[in-house]
């Protein structure tokens, strides 16, 4: 009792017991379940997954969506999902009560919450990558297969490709290096391996953050912005900052440290629709259209956006 053996055993024995029992408990308590075919009570936990599913199935197959998906100015499918119940965050009890047969989650959903949902026998489809158009297409096809809506998924992918082709043709031959673009959102910018980087590139511009070696979404200092001297600055309004910063464009133009930056001097600071630039759904192609229009205004009229397969009559908001 007084030596070192007993306290060590007091610690190591329980640890050993836990170690032996963990795999057993994991196996006993995890109930893996495949989604029933085809799922008719689908829950989308995030905005991106709600936008994916809303275009693939009628809303009567959607059980609930993230509250963000029903907000105008944030969601591309707000009007489509107007009557669908909304949920905030991941509450397993609330979800179990709804008896969903498929739950859609993304990289942003807490892993612990997903583990719990799976332990409770709820089928979860989690999309972990959506920082390229190729990956978004893959996500659409995967979801199409899971819910047996392959044809509609193919139509959505074709629409994405047609839209990007229209932009590519319109900006072909333009001097890409002349449009030095900086994406700026509350001291953060988008560098290499981000969807924003791909969007700027496809729209016929150069992403300065990427050129500066910034990876992912990272803070950028005032000093670096001045040194990079962008010719165009694009902004978007994040949901949280709405109201607090009603005029982010005005705030940027009033920054005294940036007064000699070309984009500020020439007034080329553009506020783009949040729902296009922030989404990780097929609607992200619309941000490429928005960007092409502000980078190359002379070709704006010639960009012919194909009608969306789910909503042929819908129109898209442009930049301000």
């Amino acid at each position: 009792m007084r030596g070192l053996t007993t306290p060590l055993l007091t610690i190591l024995l329980p640890l050993g017991l836990s170690g032996i029992s963990l795999p057993l408990i994991e196996a006993l308590t995890t109930v893996p379940r495949e989604p029933s075919a085809p799922p008719t009570r689908i829950v989308a936990l995030t905005l991106g997954t709600a936008e994916l599913i809303a275009d693939l199935v009628p809303t009567n197959r959607i059980q609930a969506v993230s509250y963000l998906a029903t907000k105008e100015g944030v969601s591309n499918v707000a009007s489509l999902l107007a009557g669908v119940p909304s949920i905030r965050g991941v509450n397993t009890e609330e979800l179990l009560k709804r008896h969903p047969d498929l739950i859609l989650a993304s990289r942003y959903t807490e892993p612990a919450a997903i583990s719990q949902l799976r332990r409770c026998g709820l089928p979860v489809l989690r999309f972990t990558d959506h920082e390229s158009f190729r990956q978004i297409e893959r996500n659409v096809r995967q979801l199409g297969r899971t819910i047996e809506a392959q044809e509609q998924a193919k139509r959505i992918v074709d629409w994405m490709r047609d839209t990007l082709r229209a932009v590519r043709e319109a900006v072909a031959g333009k001097d890409q290096s002349a449009e030095r673009v900086l994406f700026f959102n509350g001291h953060f910018t988008a560098g290499q391996e981000t969807l924003t980087d791909a969007q700027i590139d496809l729209a016929g511009g150069i992403n300065l953050a990427s050129l500066a070696g910034i990876e992912g979404y990272a803070p950028i200092s005032d000093e670096l912005v001045v040194a990079l001297d962008p010719t165009v600055i694009v902004l978007t309004v994040s949901l949280r900052s709405k109201g607090d910063f009603a005029d982010p464009r005005g705030a940027i133009l009033a920054k005294s440290a940036w007064r000699n930056v070309t984009a500020i001097r020439e007034g080329r600071v553009h506020l783009l629709p949040n729902e296009h630039l922030s989404t990780r759904s097929p609607y992200a192609v619309l941000a490429v259209v928005d960007l092409a229009k502000v980078l190359h205004p002379e070709v704006a009229e010639s960009i012919d956006v194909a009608p969306h397969p789910s909503r042929p009559s819908s129109s898209t908001r442009g930049s301000r």
Binding site: T10, I11, L13, P14, L15, L17, S18, S21, L22, I25, E26, T29, T92, E110, A112, A113, S115, Q116, R119
Partner: peptide, 18 residues
């Protein structure tokens, strides 16, 4: 939030033994 029986197994023996 999100804790399971696995966590009980992890913490239980050490707390009870302790």
């Amino acid at each position: 939030n999100g804790r399971s029986w696995t966590d009980v197994v992890l913490v239980g023996p050490l707390v009870v033994g302790g």
